[in-house]
Design a protein around this nucleic acid. Structure first.
Lengths: 196, 196, 196, 196
DNA sequence: GATGAATGAGCGTTCATTCAT
DNA sequence: TATGAATGAACGCTCATTCAT
C-alpha cells in the first residue's frame, strides 16, 4: 500500500518538469532571500522532494551553472542576431546587466564558492561574447577607446558587488544599477525588468 | 568544571590587552577568511576564551562598531588637521579607502546585519566628514562640480562590493581599489597599506 | 560530512516507530531525571538522531502536547463509555490522577513554558471532561456539593506540584498521590500503575 | 594607581553589609524571577562582586540555608513566646506559611538539589517546632486528632508545590495559599505579607 | 526517478566557577 | 577581603547530506 500521503510520486516522467520547477523556484527564493537560504527551501518552493533537488543539482554550484548556461545562450544569440548593428554593444551589455540583476543569487553562489569553482571558463566565455560588440562600438566611436574587456569585467563585478549587499532603504536594483553605470561613464541604458 | 588546564587566567589586568588582541585577531581572520568565520575562531586566534570574546563584544556588530569608532576618529582628526589644505579631500578620501580595504570584514558584518543595525547614524557621520573636504575641492576646481555626497557614498559601496568578493587570481585589494577609483574618475591615489 | 558511521538510516518507514520511540524514551527519561534534562538525551535514549527528534517535535512543548492529546483521548473515551455509571467521576478522576503521575515530566514542560503556551484551551478541555461526571456524582450524593470544577483543578495542581519535586526518601508517587487525595477529602482510589 | 574604575573596594569592613545585601538581593530576585536565574544576577542586584558572592555562599544551597536559618529562628522564637497560648499552632503555622510564600525561591533551590542536600536535619527541625503546638491544639480540640506531623509536612509540600509553578493569570500567592489550606481543611488564616 | 525521513557535525550562546589583582 | 575578568563545558538548534523505500 504505497504512497499513503504526501506528494504523489509521478515517476521518471516528471524529471524535466522537476528540473525547471527547481530552477524557477531558485530564482524566486534567491531574489527574495539571498543565496544563503537553506538549500532545501528551494525543493520545498518547487514542490519537489529534497532527494530530487540533489539528483538534479548535486550542489549549489551546479544550480548556478544551469542558470548561467541559459543566460549565456540568450546573450550569445542576441549578439549573433545583432552582429551587424552598430548598437550591438549597448544591446548586449544592457541585457547582461539585466541578467546580472536578475541572477544575483546565482552569482552569489559562485562568488562565495572561492577556489572550489574554476572561474576561468566562465570569464572566458563572457569575454568572448563581449569582444566583438566592444570592438565594433569603439570603431563606431560610441565608446571611448581606452575601455578594455578587463574594464568591462571589473564593471560587472562592481555592479554585482553593489547590488549584492541590499540596504533597507534602497532604491530598486534597476535604479541602482543605472547609477553605477552612469558613474563609470558607460552609455548604457538598463532595461526595465520583464513583467511577471 | 571549568578551567582545569589550558590557558592561564591572567586576571582582570589583562582586560585591555585582551580587547585589543581580539580586535586585531578579528582583522587578521576576517582578512583571511571573510566575515563568516565562526565567531569563536576569533577568540582562538586572539588566544582568549570564548567567554571573554562575548564579554568584550556581545555580538559581531559590537565588534564592528568598535572598529568603526576607531576609523571615524582617525578620519575626523585627519579632516580637522588638514581643514585648510586644498588637497584635504584627497587625503581624507584616500584614507577612507584605505580603511575600507583594511576593514572589509567589519563592513561585511554590518552589511549583512540588515535591519538589525540602524545604518543612518553611521552614514550621517560619514557624510559629515566628507562634506567639508568635498566642497573645498570643488571650489578649488579639483573635482567635478556634479559629484554629490550621495555619489561618494555609492562609490564607497561599489568599492566595498567589489572587494568583498575575493576571487582566486585577484590582484591585491589595493590595486583593485585603485582601478575602481580610476574607472569612476575620482582623482585619488590609494596609499599603500601601512607596513605590518 | 554526516552519517559516516554509527546508527544506520532505516529510511522513512521507521518514522512512526521513531515517533513512538521518542515519546516513550521521554517518559522514561523524564521519570528518572525530571523535565530539565538536555533535550537530546531523549533522542539518545530513543536511539534516534537529534535531527529526528526535532523533526517530530520542534520543541519540548510539542512533545508534551502529543502526550496530552493521547491522555485526553483516553479520558474522553472513558467518560463517554461510563456516562451512565454513577461512579463515573471516580473512574475518570482516578484515571486522570494516574495520567498525571505518569506524565509528570510533560506537565513540567508546560508548567515551565509560562506565557509561551496558552493554557486556556487545555484547561477548558479538562474542565469539559470533568463537568459531567462531577455533576452526576454530586447528584448521587457521592461528592460534597460545595466542590467546584475550580477546586478540582486546584487539586490537580496541588497533586502535580507535590509530585514534581521528588525527594530522596520518597514513597512511590502512587502512594503520595493517594495521600494527597485523602488529605483533600476526595473519595477517589488511585489505581496502581499499569504493569511494564 | 589601584581602583581606577568600578565599584570601590571597601575592604573587609564591608563583609557583613555584603552578606546581608546578598541575602536580600536574593529574596528580591528569586521572588521576581524564580530560582533559576544565573547565580551572578544576585551579585549584580546586591551591588557586589561575583567573587564576594562565592566567598559568602559557595553555592546556591548555602544561600538557601542562610535564609532557612533566619526563618527557623523566627519560628522557634514565636513558638517559645506563645507556648502557653492555645492558639499557638495557628500562629506558628500561619507564620510558616507566610515564610514559605516568601521564600519560594530558596525552597526551590533545595527542592532541585536532590540528593546533594541531606534534607533530614531540616525536616527534623521543622517537625520539632511544630510538634508542641500541634499537640496542644489537638488537646484543645482546635484540630482534628487524626492529623499527624507527617500530614503537616505533606501539606507544606503541597503548598510549596502549588505555588512554585506560577501560571499567567494566577491569583496572588497569598490567596492561592489560603485556598490550599481551606481545601485540606486546616483552620489557619494566612496573614497578609508584611508591607514593603 | 522521486520521496522525505534520518543523521550528526557544527555554530551561537550562556553560565558556573576560578583566580590574579 | 573585594573585585570582576577569564575560562570552557554544555546546551539548543540548524542544515548539508545520505539513503531506504
Amino acid at each position: 500500500m504505497p504512497e499513503r500521503k504526501g506528494r504523489p510520486n509521478l515517476g521518471p516522467a516528471a524529471a524535466d518538469q522537476n528540473r525547471s520547477a527547481l530552477v524557477s523556484a531558485a530564482r524566486r527564493i534567491y531574489a527574495r532571500h539571498g543565496h544563503e537560504v537553506p538549500f532545501n527551501t528551494i525543493a520545498k518552493e518547487a514542490g519537489v522532494g529534497q532527494g530530487s533537488l540533489y539528483r538534479h543539482f548535486p550542489n549549489r554550484i551546479a544550480l548556478a551553472m544551469a542558470v548561467f548556461e541559459e543566460n549565456f545562450l540568450e546573450l550569445e544569440e542576441l549578439a549573433r542576431e545583432h552582429a551587424a548593428d552598430p548598437r550591438c554593444f549597448e544591446l548586449v551589455f544592457a541585457r547582461l546587466v539585466r541578467q546580472c540583476v536578475d541572477s544575483l543569487g546565482f552569482i552569489g553562489i559562485i562568488a562565495s564558492a572561492g577556489r572550489d569553482f574554476p572561474l576561468d571558463a566562465t570569464i572566458g566565455r563572457l569575454a568572448a561574447v563581449l569582444t566583438g560588440p566592444l570592438d565594433r562600438a569603439q570603431r563606431e566611436g560610441l565608446l571611448r577607446d581606452t575601455l578594455t574587456i578587463d574594464d568591462l569585467l571589473l564593471i560587472l563585478r562592481m555592479l554585482y558587488g553593489t547590488l549584492s549587499h541590499g540596504v533597507p532603504g534602497d532604491a530598486g536594483p534597476t535604479v541602482l544599477a543605472q547609477r553605477v553605470l552612469d558613474l563609470v561613464g558607460l552609455p548604457v541604458r538598463v532595461a526595465d525588468p520583464p513583467p511577471g
